[in-house]
Amino acid sequence: MDRVKLQFSKEESVLLTDPSFILTKNRILARISEMMGAISEEEVKMAGLLREQLPPEVFQFPPKLSRGEQYQQLPWLMLDFPRVFQEPDQLAIRQFFWWGKLFSSTLVVSGRHKEAVLHSDLKQWPDLYICVHASPWEHHFEADNAQLISSLSDEKYRSICKKEFLKLAFQLPVENWEQAPEFFIQSYSRWMQLLVRS
């Protein structure tokens, strides 16, 4: 019978009996979701203006907004456009909100898209991160996943670029939430610069 007893801390008891926290959380997520929906419309417009210069795969699928509750036990929202995940030529731009942590914008490429991006000067942006993890689908910015390109030796940078995929990222601390729309648009514009064919 001991196994079925419920025990909560004082803090947990307060939250358990107060629905306002969950209702507030739902309102916050709804507002961020609405903002991301508007961002997706801007992304489609930006890409459309460059249609002749971008890989046709950019337009293969429409934007997709997803949400979940358990990325490292915290809620998240995610906008993908473009979203081509088939090997060998992956091409995805992901705008991500992670509750209590950050907003991030990532570009994931492989195959010919990776080779095209590597012809650009990625060191032009001192706030640009590169994925050092074996998987491109982790979204945190701990040192075992993402490192500033500007902090890497040339040798380490070249080694990272030999992986099958290339994942680049910008981040915005969640405390700077007012800047999120501008951050997403600016990041998307930077990704477009890398994808435009000369």
Rank of each mutant, 00 (worst) to 15 (best):
M1F: 15
D2W: 06
L6N: 06
L6H: 10
L6A: 05
Q7A: 11
Q7Y: 06
Q7T: 05
Q7V: 11
F8N: 11
F8G: 03
E12T: 02
S13D: 09
T17G: 05
T17D: 10
D18P: 00
S20A: 08
S20E: 13
S20P: 03
S20F: 11
F21W: 09
L23Y: 14
K25G: 08
R27C: 15
L29G: 03
A30D: 15
R31N: 14
R31L: 15
I32K: 02
E34C: 02
G37M: 12
A38C: 12
I39Q: 15
E43H: 13
V44Q: 08
K45R: 15
M46P: 00
L50T: 12
Q53Y: 10
P56K: 11
F59C: 02
F59M: 03
F61E: 14
F61A: 12
P62Q: 06
K64H: 09
L65A: 01
R67I: 00
Q70S: 10
Y71K: 02
Q72L: 13
Q72G: 06
Q72M: 10
W76T: 01
L77Q: 02
M78W: 00
D80H: 02
F81N: 06
F81P: 04
P82T: 01
F85C: 07
Q86G: 11
Q86M: 07
Q86K: 13
Q90G: 03
Q90T: 13
A92L: 11
I93H: 08
Q95W: 04
F96K: 01
W98Q: 09
L102F: 12
T106K: 09
V108Y: 11
R112Q: 14
H113G: 00
E115K: 14
L118A: 04
L118R: 12
S120N: 15
S120M: 07
D121A: 01
K123L: 14
K123W: 06
W125S: 11
P126L: 10
D127F: 06
L128N: 04
L128W: 00
Y129K: 03
C131K: 09
A134F: 02
S135H: 13
W137G: 00
H139V: 04
F141I: 00
N145I: 06
I149S: 04
I149Y: 02
S151T: 14
S153G: 09
I160K: 10
K162W: 00
E164F: 11
E164I: 11
K167A: 04
L172K: 01
P173G: 05
V174Q: 13
N176I: 00
N176F: 02
W177H: 13
A180C: 01
A180D: 07
A180V: 04
P181F: 00
P181H: 05
P181T: 05
S189F: 08
W191K: 08
M192W: 01
L195F: 07
R197P: 01
